[in-house]
Design a protein around this nucleic acid. Structure first.
Ligand SMILES: [Mn+2]
Ligand SMILES: [Mn+2]
Ligand SMILES: [Zn+2]
Ligand SMILES: [Zn+2]
Lengths: 134, 134
DNA sequence: AAACCGGTGCAATAGAGTTGCAAAGTTTTA
DNA sequence: TAAAACTTTGCAACTCTATTGCACCGGTTT
């Protein structure tokens, strides 16, 4: 699918900046943080990138990931993702290359909570060594 | 066990400050953040508390928790905890009262990782409504 | 008594995230 | 087509947590 169409499909007006950012995101197979994204460009404004990511997130183009590094990461949503609980998945953070990946092929396992605790969301991050660093 | 003995057992010199802090931690059933801890006292220095917590953590008296709120929380380790992978457990964060709890009665479930990914640690945080807020 | 040392207090800094505001660009309306 | 209205972008300022440097203090060892 063309990049522009992807934006339109999610009701995001395809500005020049947004096309550039979405392209960068699509070129990756790992999640990316704001500062990292900023460094992929020669000269962009951090705030604009920040707001671009927020817009993408609001429109379910990407989801944010808290991998425990202190920097929020973002990764493309899968086709048709609504960011509902059932779309949640595990994330993997490589302690060597520091990349963070979505592990979408298997869901998050259930956990027995204490009596009268009600689950709403889960964040599960596994750290270790990725296949490229093995 | 007396508070002082608990410190000694973990090779932490029992200063006045440390006794105070450990007492506060033991009075709680939920994890606590630095700023929160600071507010439990009339007048203490934040840095001292910070270093006290770091010392406790290094000596396996407490473990730190990244519950995704942006503030590192700390909770007492169970008797004999060595903070090894097998001591890891799920944490629960209540979206209503904002308290974070250790869920120590059940381990973290296993997850099937992609080929050649090696697991080293896991952080699993469940958010929802706790029993007190139900 | 002097040197030593861990612990404490205060000030300063780092780094990520976020907001306010005005300029620039687009779209809608008259 | 020109004005009005709305959206996007750029810059500066600010918040908040974590962290560090350094001097001081009190107890212990030489
Ligand atoms: Mn993901
Ligand atoms: Mn815990
Ligand atoms: Zn790696
Ligand atoms: Zn609660």
């Amino acid at each position: 699918m063309k990049i522009e169409d992807k934006l339109l499909k999610n009701k995001v007006k395809p500005t020049a900046m947004r096309l550039l950012v979405l392209r960068k995101l699509m070129e990756r197979n790992s999640a990316i943080g704001l500062t990292e994204l900023e460094n992929l460009f020669d000269k962009v404004d951090r705030t604009t990138l920040y707001r671009t990511l927020k817009t993408f997130e609001k429109n379910k183009l990407i989801h944010s990931i808290d991998d425990g590094t202190g920097m929020t990461k973002y990764a493309l949503c899968l086709e048709g993702c609504e960011c509902n609980p059932e779309d949640l998945h595990v994330h993997f953070h490589c302690n060597n290359c520091k990349e963070t990946f979505c592990v979408t092929d298997t869901g998050i396992p259930l956990v027995q909570l204490p009596m009268n605790f009600k689950l709403e969301e889960i964040n599960m991050v596994i750290k270790g060594i990725c296949s490229s660093c093995k």
